[in-house]
Simulated assay, not measured.
Amino acid sequence: MTKKKKIIMTVEKTDTGFSAFSNEYPIFTTGQSIPELINNTYEATGFYFEEEKVKVEPNDIKFEIDFQQFFKYYKVINAKFLAEKIGMNTTLLSQYVSGTKKPSAKQTEKILNGIHQIGQELSGINLLQTA
């Protein structure tokens, strides 16, 4: 079995949930939630490469979503909070989110690092139950 290079899946919000597709391969799928979409993508990708005897691991698949759709789905992430967290002008980040401006690769990386940092912080928190 050979290994495949990174497969980029573009994620889009739909009326019924989400869709993901590859521009390089005829792979596409849908899901009602992001976790379901991710699982369906692993299944669809494995099915596509099955005949070629190519092993595709979850690390081989990269999901991409544009700013507007990301912030539309993950409403819990406040753009003002994120901008302050990463040291970015709030108005500029809002323009990226609304689609009136496109971020550079460097700005995109800065935003993504901030999102990952928030995710790590949240995953390390346990809530106390009060009686």
Rank of each mutant, 00 (worst) to 15 (best):
I77E: 15
K110S: 12
F71M: 03
E121F: 10
G114C: 12
G99L: 04
V97Y: 00
V97Q: 00
L92Q: 05
N113P: 00
G124S: 03
Q95E: 05
S94Q: 13
N59R: 01
F47I: 04
D60Y: 03
F67I: 13
K62Q: 10
Q107K: 13
E50C: 07
K85D: 14
A44Y: 00
N78L: 07
L92P: 10
E109F: 10
T16S: 09
A79C: 13
F18E: 10
T90W: 01
P103V: 09
E12G: 15
T45A: 07
Q107E: 12
Y42W: 14
A83M: 07
Y74H: 04
P26H: 12
K80Y: 12
Q129T: 03
N39V: 06
T30A: 14
F67N: 03
D15V: 11
L37M: 15
V56D: 02
G17A: 11
S123Q: 07
E64W: 14
P35K: 15
S104I: 12
K13P: 09
I118H: 06
F28N: 11
A44D: 00
Q95N: 11
L93K: 00
V56N: 05
K55Y: 13
T30S: 06
K62N: 07
E52T: 11
K101T: 12
G46V: 02
L82K: 05
A105F: 09
D15L: 02
L112T: 08
I118P: 00
E109V: 11
G46I: 04
E121H: 08
T29D: 14
F81L: 12
G87Q: 10
T10V: 15
P26E: 07
Y74D: 08
A83V: 02
L127P: 05
I111C: 00
S22W: 06
K80G: 12
I38A: 01
S98C: 06
T130H: 05
S98R: 11
A20P: 02
L128P: 10
M9H: 05
N78T: 04
S104T: 14
N113L: 07
T91K: 04
E43D: 09
V54C: 14
I38N: 04
H116K: 10
T41R: 00
K106D: 06
Q117C: 05
N78A: 10
T2E: 15
F67R: 10
N39S: 11
G119D: 08
L127V: 11
G87E: 13
H116L: 04
K13T: 12
G124Y: 07
K85P: 08
V11N: 10
N40M: 08
I118M: 09
G124F: 13
A105V: 06
S33K: 05
P103L: 11
A131T: 09
S33H: 13
P103S: 09
E51M: 13
K6M: 03
N113C: 01
V54Y: 11
E24G: 14
I8H: 08
K53P: 02
K75W: 13
K3W: 15
S94H: 01
K6I: 01
Q68F: 14
E36F: 08
I118E: 05
G87V: 04
L112I: 03
L92Y: 08
K85N: 13
E43N: 15
K80W: 13
K3H: 08
S94L: 07
T10I: 07
T91N: 12
Q68M: 06
T45D: 05
N59I: 14
A131M: 04
S19D: 12
A105R: 10
N89W: 04
S104V: 03
D15M: 02
T90H: 12
D66K: 03
P35C: 04
G31N: 06
